[in-house]
Design a protein around this nucleic acid. Structure first.
Lengths: 143, 143
DNA sequence: TTAGGACTTCAAGCTGACTTGAGGTCAAGA
DNA sequence: TCTTGACCTCAAGTCAGCTTGAAGTCCTAA
């Protein structure tokens, strides 16, 4: 079986070794074993790391990812887990997507209006931003 | 002319007074003046704060927002500013939007597949996440 | 006159996701 | 044998974007 050192795993996924250790400390991943004190990983670790990267990019926090990887607490009905967390996240995502659409519309207006400063631009932006500040807050992703 | 204390400005925009002071410290906003040491704001401060909130929600960092509000460095050709930063941000936004679509597709799959753990789900997610980890990175929004 | 509330400053603390640095270990190659 | 490079641990530092706390000021109302 093919094995990797932490450096190789990190390189393949595009992160630093320190990040892999950090994920381990946070309970997201574990080495296959150790040889001479050094962590040894298998191919599945690379996939798990890729999955973590994906989930992170998708807006999950490390704590959420740990839940995804480990399952819900024991009082949660079986068969839930991923699908449950995923559908919750989908709702967040839809809201996020809508926000992005609003902001794209606004930015497009700004980039077309040719204004060089705020006073000129206030007209086109003012209403958007004022109406925006009265919406409900959507939880941040990644922060 | 109608004036507000920092508390009122904050309340109207939905932030804490400390955030307003923080924005001031970072050069994003200034009070109209002071009376008895206390900051006094006008209506335009409320709008500016709303604009800041909007820009933040849209993914601008406070440093970027300061640039937006103050204009580019002096060696930047006039007439750029907002429209320039806006169109740069639009590109980021488009990438972000695409990522969200990828992740929505993935999450939808997950929430429909009924898998209860990673091993079961690996099949449906593996390819997405592996291909995902080889994309170029898009800067995070909202640090 | 005194209490209250809203404000002031400044320094320090917090969260998340890491990175960096110091000091040490281990195996391989010249 | 010595060096090199990759690794180890643990503590502390970093960054953004604030919040919190302490100690003090100012105005208003009772």
């Amino acid at each position: 079986m093919e094995t990797f050192g932490i450096g190789e795993v990190a390189r393949r996924v595009g992160v630093r070794p320190s990040a892999v250790r950090y994920y381990e400390a946070r309970g997201l991943i574990e080495p296959f074993g150790r040889t001479g004190g050094k962590r040894v990983y298998g191919q599945e670790a690379v996939e798990r790391m890729a999955l973590i990267s994906f989930a992170k990019a998708v807006g999950f926090s490390l704590a959420e990812i740990r839940k995804l990887l480990a399952g819900f607490p024991h009082d949660t009905p079986a068969g839930a887990r991923w699908s449950e967390l995923a559908s919750a996240k989908l709702i967040e995502l839809d809201a996020m997507s809508q926000r992005i659409d609003v902001m794209r519309a606004a930015l497009r207006k700004i980039s077309e209006c040719g204004c060089s400063d705020l006073d000129q631009c206030a007209h086109s932006i003012g209403k958007i931003s004022l109406s925006f500040s009265h919406r409900e807050k959507v939880p941040r992703s990644g922060g």
